[in-house]
Design a protein around this nucleic acid. Structure first.
Lengths: 215, 215
DNA sequence: ACGCCCTCGTGCACGAGTTCACAAAGCACC
DNA sequence: GGTGCTTTGTGAACTCGTGCACGAGGGCGT
C-alpha cells in the first residue's frame, strides 16, 4: 500500500480535472460533503466510475457519508501536481497563438502564459496582450529563466514537428499540440493534442449518419 | 453487405480525419497509391489498425498494391459527410469566440463561420473579423436562413448549458463545447467537448508523476 | 499461362476500461 | 450497545478496442 505503487489508468487521469472542477463548485457553495452519486451527476458520468476513479487516489471517502469536499479537492490537486503554477510557453504568435495567450482560462487554472515564441523577427521583442514575444533560439534560456515546463504549439502544421524538436531540445517534456498534424516526441516526453477541425469532422460524421432527418 | 448496416466504432471515427489529412498530403505530392504501412506512419498509428479502420468503410484496397489515394480520399470524405460545407455558429463573442471566428482552420476544412452569437446588445449588429454578430433570439431564424447545423459554445461556463438548450431548441443537433463545464444535450443531439485547461492538467499529472527528474 | 511476391482483410487472443452487485464499514437513533 | 440505514470500496463479468498473425487475393514478370 505504498504511495507510488498504484498505476492510474489514463482514462481516469482525464476525468480527474473534471471532478476537481466539480469539487471547486461545491466548495463555492460551502458544501462540505459529497456522495459519489452527486459528484457523478456533476461530472456527467456514473457513480461506480467515480468511486473507482477516486479509489485510485486512496481511500478518501467515508462509508455511509461520502467524501469531504475540501480534503478530496486537496488530495486531487496534489495528485494532479496543481499545488504550484506551471508556466507555459506558447509557440506561434499567429491568430491562434495570440488568442490562446489572451485566453484567461490558462492562467486562472494555474498555467500562466510566461512568453510567446515566434520566428518572425518583426514580432520578436514586442508585447502581445502583455506577453513578451521571444525568438525560438531563446528557448533554452527562457526555460531556465522562467521555469517553463510546458510548451503549447500553435504554429502552422508544417512548422509543428520542428518546433516540437526545439522544445524537447530545450528541456521541455510536456507539449500540447494545436497544429493540425501528427507529431512525435522522444520517449520520456509527454504529448497531447487538440485538433479543432477534427472535432467538427467527427460531428459531421455523426450528423450525416445517425440523423437521416427522421421527417 | 448493404451499405448502411455497418457500425463504425467511435475510436475509428476519430481517426478518419487524420487519415484524410494524410491522404490530402499525398495528393499534393501527386502520389497515386499508398500502403497501409505508409499511411500508418503518417497518421502515427500501426498498420493493422489502419487496415481495420479502412475496412469499416468498405473494401477499397487492392491486395499486393495498396489503396488508391484519390479514390480512398473521396470515399472517406463521403463517409465523413464532407462533400458539402457545414456552416457553423459560434456562440460567445468574447476572447475565445472571437479567436475561433478569426481562426482560418475551420473555413479551410469546410466549416465556414456563418455568424457569431452574443447576448451583449453592444456587440449585436457589429462585425468581428467580417462575421456578423447576432442575438441568441435570432437563432431559429439564422438556422433557417444560413443553413447552420453545428453550434460552437465559447461562452463562460455558467452560460454554457443555457446556450446548449437554445441551440437544440433552434434545431441544431451538433454542438462543440469549449466552455470548461459539463453540459448535457437531449437524446439525438451530438456533443463533443474541447477542454483546454484539462489538457494542461493531464500533462501536469504525468510530468509530476512519471518524471521525478531522473538526475 | 503460371507462379511468385506483395499487401489487404480479418479471425482471434489479449488488454484496458466500464458496469454491476455486494460485502464492509461508519453513523445515527433508540 | 445494538440495530438499521447509507454509502463506500472492490471483485468479477462484460464490452470495447488493439495488435498479431495468417489466409486470401490481385498484379507482375517470365
Amino acid at each position: 500500500m505504498t504511495d507510488g505503487a498504484r498505476h492510474i489508468p489514463e482514462a481516469t487521469v482525464s476525468r480527474l480535472p473534471v471532478y476537481l472542477r466539480s469539487l471547486a463548485e461545491l466548495l463555492d457553495e460551502k458544501v462540505t460533503t459529497v456522495s459519489s452519486e452527486r459528484l457523478a451527476e456533476m461530472a456527467g458520468v456514473n457513480a461506480a466510475k467515480v468511486r473507482k476513479d477516486l479509489s485510485y487516489l486512496g481511500s478518501y471517502g467515508t462509508r455511509g457519508v461520502g467524501y469531504e469536499v475540501e480534503y478530496l479537492a486537496f488530495q486531487m490537486s496534489r495528485e494532479l501536481g496543481l499545488t504550484h503554477d506551471w508556466p507555459v510557453a506558447i509557440v506561434g504568435a499567429g491568430n491562434l497563438g495570440q488568442a490562446l495567450a489572451n485566453y484567461g482560462g490558462f492562467t486562472e487554472r494555474g498555467f500562466p502564459v510566461a512568453c510567446l515564441i515566434d520566428a518572425d523577427v518583426d514580432k520578436v521583442g514586442s508585447r502581445i496582450h502583455g506577453v513578451q514575444v521571444h525568438h525560438p533560439d531563446d528557448l533554452p534560456h527562457l526555460v531556465e529563466e522562467l521555469g517553463i515546463s510546458i510548451g503549447i504549439i500553435a504554429t502552422p502544421a508544417v512548422a509543428a514537428q520542428g518546433v516540437a524538436d526545439q522544445l524537447v531540445a530545450a528541456g521541455i517534456k510536456s507539449i500540447l499540440n494545436f497544429a493540425p498534424t501528427v507529431i512525435t516526441v522522444p520517449e520520456g516526453a509527454f504529448l497531447r493534442k487538440v485538433d479543432l477541425a477534427l472535432e467538427l469532422q467527427v460531428l459531421s460524421f455523426y450528423q450525416e449518419h445517425r440523423a437521416p432527418d427522421p421527417v
